[in-house]
Simulated scan of single mutants.
Amino acid sequence: MKYFSCCVLLAGLFISLNTSAQASLSYNRGHSHNDYHQRIPLLTAYEAGMGSIEADVFLRNGELFVAHDTSEISVNATLKKLYLEPLARFYRKNGNQAYKDGSHKLQLVIDIKQDCKNVIPRLIADLSSYETIFNSSVNPKAIKIVLSGDMPDPMEFKNYPDYISFDGRPKIVYTDEQLKRVAMISDNLKSYTSWNGKGVPTKDEESKLRTVIEKAHRQQKPFRFWASKDNPDTWIVLEQLGADWINTDHPAQLREFYLHKDGYISPAIR
C-alpha cells in the first residue's frame, strides 16, 4: 500500500488535480480480478469506475454462490445479493445506464468454477428478473454479461441467449459466428514471460506479448492478461504493449494511478 501511495504522491508533483477526459476513460479499462475478495465486494470496484468486474461462482442447491473455492461458500454470498441486485439499483439510479458518466461501460465477468452446463441455465433464469438491464443484445446501455472459467465448447455458444458472451482464449480457433459471441481474449501472462513487473520484459518476451495482443486485435477483440503483477510499472507497460483490460486486485489504486499517470515516470518499452 505504501508503494501505491508513493506513486500517487509522486504523480501529484508533476500534474495538477484537474483530470482529462482521456484519463477518466483510462481507469474504466480496469478489470477487478476476484472482486469478491475486496473488503467491500462490488462497491470498491464500482466506485473506482472499473469497466470490468469479476465474480467466481459455484452452483449449490439451485443457487449461485460467489466464492473462489467451495470452502469459501457462504449462505449470504449469492451472485444475486452481492452483484445482480446492487448493479440493477445503480443502473436505475443512473437513469438506466451502468455509470452516471454515460461514456463509462461495465461488464460483469462471471467465472464459472465448475459445472457450466447447469450454472448457465440458472444464471439465465436469474438474469430474467432484471428486464433488459443485463441484456446487451437489445439494450446498448446494458451491463454486459461475460462468462469465463468453465465454459461450453464454442460449438455450443449458439445454444445460449445472444446477450451471453464468452471470454475467449488465443489458442482456440473460432469460426466467424463463434467469434461474434466472444467479448474479449484473455490469457495467463506467465505463459509468455518471467518478467517480475519491474522495469520491462526482455525483447523476446515483449515480442511474444505483442504478438498475442495483436492477434486479438486483428480479430477485433480487446485483450486481457491475468496473473500479472499489480503495480504501476506493470499497468503502464501492459498498456504500452496494447493490452485493453488491465487486471488488478487494487481498483481504487488503479483509478488513482490512471488519473495521474501523465506524471508517472515508467521505463519505456522498446
Results as ranks from 00 to 15, higher is better:
residue 2 K to I: 14
residue 8 V to C: 04
residue 9 L to P: 04
residue 18 N to P: 11
residue 22 Q to T: 08
residue 25 L to A: 11
residue 26 S to V: 12
residue 29 R to F: 02
residue 31 H to P: 13
residue 32 S to Q: 06
residue 37 H to T: 15
residue 38 Q to D: 15
residue 43 L to K: 15
residue 47 E to Y: 09
residue 48 A to Y: 04
residue 54 E to H: 02
residue 54 E to Y: 04
residue 57 V to R: 00
residue 58 F to L: 04
residue 67 A to Q: 04
residue 74 S to V: 05
residue 74 S to D: 14
residue 77 A to G: 12
residue 81 K to C: 09
residue 81 K to Y: 14
residue 85 E to C: 10
residue 91 Y to V: 06
residue 92 R to W: 04
residue 96 N to G: 02
residue 101 D to E: 09
residue 101 D to L: 12
residue 109 V to L: 02
residue 110 I to Q: 04
residue 112 I to F: 07
residue 115 D to Y: 11
residue 116 C to W: 08
residue 117 K to L: 12
residue 119 V to A: 03
residue 119 V to R: 01
residue 127 L to C: 02
residue 128 S to W: 06
residue 128 S to K: 14
residue 139 N to G: 09
residue 141 K to I: 00
residue 144 K to D: 10
residue 150 D to A: 15
residue 152 P to G: 05
residue 152 P to S: 10
residue 157 F to I: 03
residue 158 K to R: 09
residue 166 F to K: 05
residue 168 G to H: 06
residue 169 R to P: 01
residue 169 R to D: 09
residue 169 R to N: 11
residue 170 P to S: 07
residue 173 V to N: 15
residue 180 K to F: 10
residue 182 V to F: 07
residue 185 I to G: 13
residue 188 N to I: 08
residue 190 K to I: 07
residue 191 S to N: 15
residue 192 Y to N: 00
residue 192 Y to K: 08
residue 197 G to N: 06
residue 198 K to C: 06
residue 203 K to V: 15
residue 222 P to G: 06
residue 223 F to K: 05
residue 229 K to L: 14
residue 236 I to D: 15
residue 236 I to F: 08
residue 241 L to H: 07
residue 246 I to W: 03
residue 246 I to T: 12
residue 247 N to V: 05
residue 247 N to F: 13
residue 255 R to L: 07
residue 258 Y to G: 03
residue 259 L to Y: 08
residue 260 H to V: 09
residue 261 K to D: 11
